[in-house]
Design a protein around this nucleic acid. Structure first.
Ligand SMILES: [Mn+2]
Ligand SMILES: [Mn+2]
Ligand SMILES: [Mn+2]
Ligand SMILES: [Mn+2]
Lengths: 230, 230
DNA sequence: ACGAGTTATAAGGTTTGCCTTATAATAGAC
DNA sequence: GTCTATTATAAGGCAAACCTTATAACTCGT
């Protein structure tokens, strides 16, 4: 658990690789560059450096995956971010859709000491306000089932577990429509040709209906399912 | 109140200039370099940049002083730091002598939005845990009287208001001896030739006595004075 | 088996914030 | 007034992260 001094840049690269699935399989460096808004050449340079530090492993023309150290460091960053998100929402009452970005700054300036005291202060929450799991202090996260709203059939109901990825625009859009973790919903209609879903949000028959594009529905993870399974 | 994007480095330079008295008179750049642990040449280069941005004013061979913008930015950094110190001590229960350094990291990663929500959460405290005033959101701080423990005469009593500057080593040393803001004390003896003071810390006659070098006593600001004035 | 698109590498450049060494200018102490 | 310590500037360098442009190598779908 040697938390060698790592720059904000290094932390963000590792976090991005983790979010793109770098714990499980190789992530194309182009994806990383895209997500981080840097040129592929820049991302490549950084991957070379991270490889030298044994934080990632680079399979040529396939992509990068996290080593043990890399995974732990990435999850430590994610832990810090999500704990801050909890604090900003629960205590400072800041906007649910904005805290992700605010916490993304704080995460790099937070000593382990502060992280652990914060975790205790918050009662060791297991999820961030957007429903995503908070890694434990050893940098481990449990796997989740991967059911998404886009896979629900007409008539099925579920409860929103999390939004992935946590982008402000996306979060703001979903929040406006009441689509936040814990919310239950039912798919009333699915337009053909990958068209939008029509949802009933909440339990009451009187709730306004919500139309949601399938691409967005893919980013909404679902917990429980009820209703006919086909 | 244009909070133009300023780097951590710029913020630290401005904070340092402010702490060295740059609101009032010119601060020699050598002092700044020394305090920041950089070479005088580096500090000079930075001062040139800060001058171009109209954050400081440089009087050749005299030193630098803060402009209005520079003072506001410096005080905004100090505000962020001291608010975080309050949070870390009061809520996270972290060590009084360590929070200064921990907050010095957080201060640069804290959006105005977060700062103001934090201030409200904390009940708009007016002082940090080390007794120093928290600038208001407009970047203003009131002046304090400048009585220090080193100036108390034998027999006089006072109450510790603040420790300046806030260096971890200094804070840890003083905390070990019970010398924290709010604590009342009496000077029992002052050794000749700039020798150490002997103090009674607290009100009870049974308290252990504390010996404190005059150089350290200069860094302890005193609020009230009682006892014969000479 | 080939070609399109992706991925990798090479080369050269920028900005920020540091460094050292050397020299010039100045202020302040004596 | 002169000398010394401080302060300023010039010159050259370095590392981290970025960039663009160009070329080479590879994968994969058809
Ligand atoms: Mn971040
Ligand atoms: Mn979150
Ligand atoms: Mn700082
Ligand atoms: Mn303080």
């Amino acid at each position: 658990m040697i938390e060698s001094a790592s720059s904000e840049s290094v932390e963000m690269y590792l976090k991005t690789v983790a979010e793109l699935g770098g714990e499980h399989g190789p992530v194309p460096i182009g994806r990383v560059a895209e997500r981080m808004g840097v040129s592929p050449v820049s991302a490549n340079e950084m991957m070379k450096r991270l490889g030298e530090q044994r934080l990632i492993q680079h399979q040529m023309y396939k992509g990068v995956s996290l080593t043990g150290d890399g995974r732990r460091l990435a999850n430590s960053v994610i832990r810090r971010q999500r704990l801050w998100e909890c604090f900003l929402v629960d205590h400072l009452k800041l906007d649910w859709a904005r805290v992700h970005d605010l916490a993304c700054d704080l995460e790099h300036a937070t000593a382990t000491e502060v992280t652990e005291a914060l975790a205790q202060y918050l009662g060791n929450p297991s999820r961030c306000p957007h429903g995503n799991p908070i890694p434990d202090r050893d940098g481990e996260v449990g796997q989740e089932n991967d059911l998404t709203l886009s896979r629900l059939k007409v008539g099925q109901s579920g409860r929103i577990r999390a939004i992935v990825p946590e982008s402000s625009d996306l979060l703001a859009y979903l929040a406006e429509r009441g689509l936040i973790p814990g919310q239950s919903l039912t798919v009333l209609e699915a337009a053909p040709l990958k068209g939008p879903l029509t949802l009933r949000v909440g339990d009451s028959q009187e709730e306004p209906q919500v139309a949601l594009g399938l691409a967005l529905a893919e980013l909404v993870q679902i917990d429980r399912v009820e209703g006919k399974s086909d």
